[in-house]
């Protein structure tokens, strides 16, 4: 069985409260934020490795990004993936999700046979959750999104999808694209053996010389959406701290709730 995991290297947005706005000119000031594997993609890598451990599969991890994305791929190898490929070329810069999913789909076609494609449900920088379904469309295969549990039965997978208030059980014929949520597993730390092996591993870089994609379908030119402006949102106005001892605070809070008519039965 061949599993392909698509991952993205992203800035650690948990650290982003370090983002400050320079009051003089409203520019964003950031202090050295490190790059990590998109957390949901770590769940995808982990799931692929678990399947590999149970059903004997080969796991290939790919990422489209700038050269430093190799670090993310190395970590995936250290966790247990078999192969890694970086898809990188200056002409891919500025890709939105359509161009990204197109480029990835072409790289996957070049890789050849596969049974399952796993991705995290969304990237924590873009937050669009669009690349997974886009990829499935370009490849012409079924998709299932927001999967929290996955079981392989021959040429089928059975999954549990997270809906608004319940879970849906779906069976899909492979090949298919699956996007996963955090609930699916706890990603492992790479072992030392894995880390050392990954350090020495060859990670091929596939540029457009190799993929030969039409320039109007990749990068900025292949992106229907354009970012015209980026700005820091207005912080909402601060409220007040309710003072007093425990009982007083409770009373005051109830008063405010009453005053603002927030409860139907309390006026």
């Amino acid at each position: 069985m061949h599993i392909i995991v698509c991952i993205k290297q992203v800035p650690d947005t948990e650290e982003l409260p370090r983002v400050r706005v320079n009051p003089e000119d409203n520019t964003i000031v950031r202090e050295g934020i490190k790059s990590i594997i998109n957390p949901f993609d770590e769940n995808a890598i982990e799931e692929a490795i678990r399947i590999k451990e149970k059903n004997s599969a080969v796991v290939t991890v790919i990422s489209m990004g700038p050269p430093q994305a190799k670090d993310a791929l190395r970590k995936a190898l250290a966790m247990g993936a078999d192969k890694a490929i970086l898809i990188s070329d200056p002409v891919f810069a500025g890709s939105d999700t359509l161009a990204t999913s197109f480029t990835l789909s072409e790289a996957i076609r070049k890789i050849g046979n596969f049974d399952l494609i796993l991705l995290g449900k969304q990237a924590i920088d873009g937050d669009t959750a669009q690349v997974g379904p886009g990829l499935a469309e370009w490849l012409g295969i079924p998709q299932v999104t927001y999967v929290r549990r996955l079981e392989i039965k021959d040429k089928l997978i059975k999954v549990e999808r997270v809906l608004e208030d319940c879970f849906e059980i779906v069976e899909i014929k492979l090949p298919a694209v699956v996007t996963v949520t955090k609930e699916i597993n706890e990603p492992r730390y790479p072992s030392l053996k894995g880390l050392l092996r990954a350090r020495k591993a060859e990670i091929p870089v596939w540029g457009n010389d190799y993929l030969g994609l039409p320039l109007d379908k990749v990068g900025l030119d292949g992106s229907p959406t354009r970012v015209t402006k980026v700005f820091v949102p207005e912080p909402p106005p601060r409220g007040k701290i309710i003072e007093g001892d425990l009982n007083q605070k409770v009373e005051k809070l109830i008063e405010e709730i009453k005053k603002r008519n927030l409860l139907k039965w309390l006026r």
Binding site: L16, V19, R226, K229, P233
Partner: peptide, 17 residues
Amino acid sequence: RPAFGGNIMASIITPYH
């Protein structure tokens, strides 16, 4: 729309499609 975990807002258009 918000991006980067809500740390910034982006203004986006789809000019040619």
